[in-house]
Design a protein around this nucleic acid. Structure first.
Lengths: 162, 162
DNA sequence: CTAAGATGGACAACGTCGTTGTCGGAAATA
DNA sequence: TATTTCCGACAACGACGTTGTCCATCTTAG
């Protein structure tokens, strides 16, 4: 029973998971702003990942993000105004418009990757490579294999109607 | 340099942190729904924690949550309609209205605590007590000491104006 | 004690975001 | 060829958070 003693309250784990995540994302965006990308929202990175290197359509993006195609369309509008993506007609299908990252958008993705490496390096400096690996390994065991269900938007959710 | 080889991409860590957090919160709410508390939003727990055992006022709640007092007021309206909190006049200050958890609200908090313990126990079954403790310890080192800056609402953030 | 300032709560207007509903044009299928 | 499916856009709506305003009340300075 001694292994049960002094166990932290159960809610600490999820809370710390969130705090750590949030901390990293906040630092990412602070750094991103310094390197030429202000105006990026916390989850625009997810959107860019969902767009992918070859581009997508609004409807497909909506599916990947777990939102309606209209919502995806509005997100694209906003990102287009900010210069991160652009739309081009699909020569094969007159209905579709291919949404692609612009150079600026691709740059934000590259910068994000750099910064994530730096952040991980900081964790390694504090905890050591071994524990960071253990951390990643443990989290990998506790989460779905495919780290690509990025249906984050609106996850905090509405209170529904009435 | 061999310790650098095969390191996962830097973005995996934050992503897994979020996935794990989200997974736990989703399970919490699924279970909460089964135990008499549907209609709870992912972060209502944060709000309840911010209200605390002795109650608060809307303005104070807004400060703790990092939102305007009006937004806090609307949140309270919603929670009041759902029967989780109620408002009572403060005998000492005619301006203030004390927001308190109802029995139903307190019950949701107690149930949440139970479920969090069960979820942690599940992690222990998979990873072992030792690694879960290490996980908690590492995360504690990488996050602020006070685990009570619950200014979560709207964190995913708007795209500001125009 | 009184006048000035600060604070709490409510109301209203606004903007953002995501939703559903609808529609016309284009592609896929029967 | 005719029907069905799919894409993208427009419109209306509800939820949520914001600022601005207002009055009532508490606090503080003089």
């Amino acid at each position: 029973m001694s292994s049960e003693t002094n166990a932290p309250p159960g809610f600490e784990l999820p809370l710390r998971l969130f705090m750590a995540f949030r901390e990293m994302i906040d630092e990412l965006h602070a750094e991103l702003a310094r390197r030429g990308h202000p105006n990026m929202r916390p989850m625009d990175g997810f959107v860019f990942q969902a767009i992918g290197p070859y581009g997508t359509t609004a409807a497909e993006l909506g599916r990947r993000l777990g939102v309606s195609k209209q919502a995806a369309g509005k997100t694209i509008d906003a990102l287009e105004r900010l210069g991160y993506v652009d739309r081009a007609a699909d020569p094969r299908d007159a209905r579709r418009k291919i949404v692609k990252l612009t150079a600026h958008g691709a740059d934000s993705l590259a910068k994000s990757a750099e910064i994530f490496e730096e952040l991980r390096a900081r964790w390694v400096r504090t905890l050591g490579e071994k524990r960071v690996r253990a951390l990643e390994s443990d989290l990998r065991r506790m989460t779905p294999d495919d780290y690509f269900r990025v249906d984050v938007p609106g996850w905090f959710g509405d209170r529904g109607g009435s």
